[in-house]
Deep mutational scan, measured.
Amino acid sequence: HSLRVHINGKDFEVHNADEHVIRALEELIRRGADADELKEFLERWKG
């Protein structure tokens, strides 16, 4: 899957995101994670 996440006016393109990554991202958003947390998660995932 390809996923586009809009954080703090920046678009993050997440390519080849598997279900696990997408679910983790949705969980963060549901918990009310702020932009920094989401960005950190995506950067860690992209490795």
Results as ranks from 00 to 15, higher is better:
Ile29Met: 08
Lys39Pro: 01
Phe41Leu: 07
Lys39Met: 15
Glu27Asp: 12
Phe12Glu: 01
Asp11Arg: 06
Asp11Glu: 13
Glu37Tyr: 08
Leu38Met: 06
Arg4Lys: 15
Asp36His: 09
Arg31Gly: 12
Val21Ile: 12
Lys46Asp: 13
Asp36Lys: 09
Leu38Tyr: 03
Glu40Ser: 11
Ser2Pro: 14
His20Asp: 11
Lys46Tyr: 13
Ser2Thr: 14
Gly9Pro: 00
Ala33Met: 07
Lys10Arg: 10
Ile22Ala: 03
Glu40Gly: 10
Ser2Leu: 15
Leu38Asn: 00
Leu42His: 04
Ile22Asn: 01
Val14Arg: 00
Ile22Cys: 02
Ala17Asp: 03
Ala17Phe: 03
Arg23Asn: 09
His1Ile: 15
Lys46Pro: 14
Asp34Pro: 09
Glu40Asn: 09
Arg30Ser: 11
Arg31Pro: 01
His20Cys: 11
Leu38Thr: 02
Ile7Gly: 01
Lys46Gly: 14
Glu27Ala: 12
His20Phe: 09
Ala17Ile: 11
Phe12Pro: 00
Val21Glu: 04
Ala24Ser: 07
Ala35Cys: 07
Trp45Ile: 14
Gly9Asn: 02
Leu28Ile: 08
Gly47Pro: 12
His20Gly: 10
Phe41Gly: 01
Leu28Phe: 08
Ala24Ile: 10
Ala33Lys: 06
Val21Cys: 04
His20Glu: 13
Ala33Cys: 09
Gly32Leu: 05
Gly47Met: 10
Val14Asp: 00
Ala24Leu: 10
Ala17Pro: 08
Val21Lys: 03
Lys46Ile: 14
Asn16Met: 07
Asp34Cys: 05
Val21Arg: 02
Arg31Val: 10
Ala24Phe: 08
Glu13Gly: 01
Leu25Phe: 06
Glu13Tyr: 10
Lys39Gln: 14
His6Tyr: 02
Lys39Tyr: 15
Phe12Leu: 03
Gly32Thr: 03
Phe41Ile: 07
Gly47Gln: 14
Glu19Cys: 13
Leu42Tyr: 13
Asp11Val: 15
Glu27Leu: 05
Ser2Glu: 15
Glu26Arg: 08
Glu27Cys: 09
Val21Trp: 03
Ala17Cys: 03
Glu40His: 10
Asp36Cys: 03
Ile22Gly: 02
Glu19Gly: 06
Val5Asn: 00
His20Lys: 12
Phe12Lys: 00
Glu40Thr: 10
Phe41Asn: 03
Asn8Gln: 05
Gly32Val: 03
Ser2Asn: 15
Gly9Phe: 00
Glu27Phe: 04
Val14Gln: 00
Leu38Ala: 03
Arg44Ser: 12
Phe12Ser: 00
Arg23Met: 10
Gly32Phe: 05
Ser2Tyr: 11
Leu28Val: 04
Glu13Phe: 10
Glu19Arg: 10
Val5Thr: 02
Asn16Phe: 10
Phe12His: 02
Asn8Ala: 07
His6Ile: 13
Leu28Met: 13
Arg30Val: 11
Arg30Thr: 11
Ala35Ser: 11
Gly9His: 01
Val5Glu: 01
His20Met: 11
Glu43Lys: 08
Val14Leu: 08
Ala35Gln: 06
His15Glu: 07
Val5Pro: 00
Lys39Asn: 13
His15Ala: 06
Val21Ala: 05
Lys39Glu: 14
Glu13Gln: 05
Asp36Ala: 08
Asp34His: 10
Lys46Gln: 14
Ile29Thr: 03
Lys10Pro: 00
Arg44Val: 10
His6Leu: 05
His6Arg: 14
Glu43Ser: 07
Arg31Ala: 11
Glu27Met: 07
Leu38Pro: 00
Ser2Lys: 14
Leu3Asp: 15
Leu38Cys: 03
Glu19Lys: 12
Ala33Thr: 09
Phe12Ala: 00
Arg23Thr: 08
Glu40Tyr: 06
Leu38Val: 09
Asn8Trp: 02
Val14Ile: 11
Trp45Asp: 11
Leu25Val: 08
Val21Asn: 02
Asn16Leu: 06
His6Trp: 02
Glu27Gly: 09
Asn8Asp: 11
Trp45Gly: 11
Arg31Thr: 13
Glu26Asp: 07
Val5Gly: 01
Leu42Asp: 01
Lys10Tyr: 07
Ala24Gln: 11
Arg4Leu: 10
Ala35Val: 15
Arg4Trp: 02
Leu25Ser: 00
His20Ala: 13
Lys39Cys: 12
Glu26Ile: 14
Asn8Met: 04
Asn16Gly: 11
Leu38Trp: 05
Asn16His: 10
Arg44Asn: 13
Leu42Thr: 04
Arg4Tyr: 03
Lys39Asp: 08
Val14Ala: 02
Glu26Ser: 08
Arg4Phe: 04
Ser2Arg: 15
Arg44Asp: 14
Arg31Phe: 10
Ala33Ile: 06
Arg4His: 15
Gly32Lys: 05
Glu40Met: 09
Lys10Thr: 09
Ile22Lys: 04
Ile29Phe: 08
Leu25Thr: 01
Asp18His: 08
Arg23Trp: 05
Asp36Ile: 08
Glu19Met: 10
Asp34Thr: 12
Asp36Thr: 09
Leu3Pro: 13
Ile7Thr: 01
Ile29Asp: 02
Lys46Thr: 14
Val14Cys: 02
Leu28Asn: 02
Phe41His: 06
Ile7Ser: 01
Leu28Ala: 06
Asp36Val: 08
Trp45Ala: 09
Glu27Ser: 10
Phe12Asp: 00
Val5His: 01
Ala17Gln: 07
Leu28Lys: 04
Arg30Leu: 12
Leu3Gln: 14
Ala35Asn: 05
Glu26Met: 13
Ala17Met: 06
Gly9Glu: 01
Phe12Met: 03
His1Lys: 15
Glu13Ala: 04
Ile22Thr: 03
His6Asp: 03
Glu27Asn: 09
Asp34Val: 06
Asp18Tyr: 03
Glu37Ile: 10
Ala35Lys: 03
Ile29Pro: 00
Asp36Ser: 10
Arg4Ala: 15
Arg30His: 10
Gly32Met: 06
Val21Met: 12
Lys39Thr: 14
Glu37Trp: 05
Arg44Tyr: 10
Lys10Phe: 04
Trp45Arg: 12
Leu42Ile: 10
Ser2His: 15
Phe41Asp: 01
Arg44Trp: 12
Lys10Asp: 04
His15Ser: 08
Glu43Thr: 06
Asp11Ala: 07
Arg30Asn: 11
Arg30Gly: 11
Leu42Ala: 03
Arg31Gln: 13
Lys39Ile: 14
Asp18Asn: 12
Ala24Thr: 07
Val14His: 01
Leu38Ser: 01
Gly32Arg: 05
Arg23Ala: 10
Leu25Ile: 12
Glu40Asp: 13
Glu40Pro: 02
His20Thr: 12
Gly47Ser: 13
Leu25Arg: 00
Ala35Glu: 09
His20Leu: 11
Arg4Asn: 15
Leu42Cys: 06
Lys46Val: 14
Gly32Gln: 07
Val5Asp: 01
Leu28Pro: 00
Asp18Arg: 03
Arg44Lys: 13
Ala33Arg: 04
Phe12Ile: 07
Glu13Cys: 15
Gly32Asp: 06
